[in-house]
């Protein structure tokens, strides 16, 4: 059991952080919404009602979609785009999808390679892109749920202001939808871009996200 925890400590730690943060967001968001409802002379809602409300759903999914978009773009763009000196980049000469031999697929698969890497044809082609497909699917679904939940939450606010609700199609072109979306995207792109650049010159001893401390600033695609 101890070995299991030690060998999976990274994913377990982030799982705990995620659940703790989500629970904290639920409690804080519930109090925030009830504070607003009280100020408007409306009835406060239970925690159970808040957890199934469009307000909670939109606040959660607008962050999820942007995180998965960030990793989708990072996974996809780093196939072709490089950054000299960054451990986040491949070596400059390796830009592109690379050879079957280097990717260990088909005839070049090793004994311990996944079966789908050895199968060839469509199955290997799909498996070769499964990380991007999965990240992309979660991004699209999260963004879709954000759009629906955001539409419902925005219409609830409009009615509190004695205004007619709008259609979902209109909401997709509305500033509320794009403000929620773009405020998350800009922060993700800034974080990824700055990580790619700062890691050229700065080091974190022992982290695979950094080059070894003594590596040259010119060394590209080297992880510590």
């Amino acid at each position: 059991m101890r070995r299991f925890f030690r060998e999976n400590s990274l994913s377990l730690a982030f799982g705990v952080l995620f659940l703790g943060s989500l629970a904290g967001q639920a409690i804080a968001g519930w109090h925030q919404l009830n504070d607003e409802l009280f100020a408007d002379g409306l009835d406060r809602i239970t925690l159970g009602s808040y957890l199934t409300s469009s307000s909670f759903a939109v606040d959660v999914t607008e962050n999820w979609q942007s995180e998965y978009l960030q990793f989708l773009l990072y996974v996809m763009l780093t196939v072709w785009l490089v950054q000299r000196g960054s451990p986040e980049s491949k070596p400059l000469k390796d830009a592109g999808q690379e050879s079957d031999e280097k990717q260990k697929v088909g005839a070049y698969a090793r004994p311990d390679s996944p079966k789908l890497a050895r199968a060839g044809g469509l199955r290997t082609a799909l498996y070769s892109r499964s990380l991007g497909f999965t990240m992309g699917a979660i991004f699209v679904l999260s963004w879709l749920v954000q759009s629906v939940a955001g539409w419902a939450a925005y219409n609830e606010t409009r009615m509190q202001q004695l205004r007619d609700p709008i259609a979902w199609g209109s909401y997709l072109l509305h500033s509320d939808f794009w403000a929620r979306t773009l405020q998350n995207w800009q922060s993700e792109f800034l974080a990824v871009g700055s990580m790619a650049v700062l890691s050229i010159y700065l080091r974190q001893r022992g982290s695979p996200e950094s080059k070894p401390v003594g590596s040259s600033h010119e060394a590209t695609g080297v992880e510590g």
Binding site: I45, S54, A153, M159
Partner: peptide, 18 residues
């Protein structure tokens, strides 16, 4: 009739209720 969360609107000819 439109219902979103804790709010609803009912529209008639010449009158609307929230």
């Amino acid at each position: 009739v439109d219902v979103f969360g804790t709010m609803a609107e009912v529209r008639y000819q010449g009158e609307t209720l929230f």
